Amino acid sequence: MNSSVSALPLSTLSPANEALTLRLPSSLQLKQQLPLTHALTQQVAAHRQAVRAILNGEDSRLLIIVGPCSIHDPHSALEYAANLARLAADVSDQMLLVMRAYVEKPRTTVGWKGLAYDPQLDGSDDMAGGLTLSRELMREMLQLGLPVATELLQPMAAGYFDDLLSWVAIGARTTESQIHREMASGLGMPVGFKNGTDGGVTVASDAMRSAAHPHRHFGVDSQGHPAIVQTPGNPDTHLVLRGGHRGPNYDRDSVAQIRSDLTRLKIPARIMVDCSHANSGKDPARQPAVFNDVLEQRLQGDQSLIGMMIESHLFEGCQPLSPTLRYGVSVTDGCLGWGTTEQILRQAADRLRSRDSVQLPA
């Protein structure tokens, strides 16, 4: 991988309070430098349609978004993706596995903002290189046959990746943002809105209703020029439960209340559960328990639960940024290791197959 497209300085730092401006390549330039083949473009279209079919109840498989909390090392990320591609083929009758390729990370205050911002992990913030590296990496994941998912945090960055993605998350801190709702209304793939950090779903419900409508908003075109953007509205949104300050919200009673609230608002009751964050008490070792609880609800007939999200890397836990990083260990939230991840997904597929065999007519 290389980062040959570089930022160009437009101004120098003059007064102490004046920002330094560096020009980035346009999204069109980067897409031309790192294009998708026709076959990969068709693959992304097919994966998006597969996700839509699950959301619409036309496909009974579970949608599983799984992968590192954030990607900081392309080599370990691609090793993980290769493992996931092999597993995806084995469980494809029961699950659609989507690679979590998060290259932007929201920060409560300050900290490392992700591969797209700081690919060298040293505060140099080579964003031109980060965008290039991120696109290269996602393209290699597509070449493994995987659908790719990410959280879109900075709307201006969306155009660099939008043709690669089969599913997008809007995070708990940005679901309330009008700018992100407008962006979602123009995306060509399904979008999951997370509930707010308080655990309530009103903000996410409002976001889904807003994103379903057409908008005209300020934006940039593919060449980087300021533009009026007109969007058609996105019918393929759903809710992602991640818990909140009051605790988890994946239990049966919470899901039943949320399902009722969505129905009352005439929003399709399509619910994914994030097994991490407040639902696991930020303890990665609790993710399998959350996953299996949700799976049991699904097995008992709750079709509103369309899937789960798991934070997982090659090895369990997390580590602070340092000059000597352990290979395959998250540098943001703690993750499950690959062995445990594979085990719970294979066991889930077996349980789903057993359900199917019982339901078959004699």
Score class of each variant (00 low, 15 high):
Gln42Thr: 15
Gln43Leu: 15
His47Trp: 15
Arg48Gly: 10
Arg48His: 07
Ala50Tyr: 14
Leu55Gln: 14
Leu55Met: 14
Leu55Trp: 01
Asn56Ser: 08
Glu58Ile: 02
Ile64Leu: 09
Val66Arg: 08
Gly67Phe: 02
Pro68Ser: 04
Ser70Leu: 00
Ser70Cys: 11
Pro74Ser: 02
His75Ile: 05
His75Cys: 13
Leu78Met: 14
Leu78Ala: 15
Glu79Gln: 08
Ala81Glu: 01
Ala81Gly: 02
Ala82Glu: 11
Asn83Ser: 08
Leu84Ala: 04
Leu84Val: 01
Ala85Ser: 08
Arg86Gly: 08
Ala88Ile: 03
Ser92Gly: 09
Ser92His: 09
Ser92Tyr: 09
Asp93Asn: 11
Asp93Phe: 02
Met95Ala: 08
Leu96Asn: 04
Leu96Arg: 15
Leu96Lys: 09
Leu97Gly: 03
Arg100Tyr: 08
Tyr102Phe: 14
Glu104Thr: 00
Lys105Thr: 06
Pro106Cys: 05
Pro106Trp: 06
Arg107Phe: 10
Thr109Tyr: 00
Val110Gln: 04
Gly111Glu: 11
Trp112Gly: 04
Ala116Glu: 06
Asp118Gly: 09
Asp118Lys: 05
Asp122Thr: 01
Asp125Lys: 01
Gly129Arg: 12
Gly130His: 12
Leu131Gln: 09
Leu137Lys: 15
Leu137Met: 07
Met138Gly: 05
Met138Ala: 05
Met141Asp: 09
Gln143Trp: 06
Gly145Ile: 04
Leu146Ala: 02
Pro147His: 12
Pro147Cys: 14
Ala149Trp: 00
Ala149Ser: 13
Leu153Phe: 14
Gln154Trp: 15
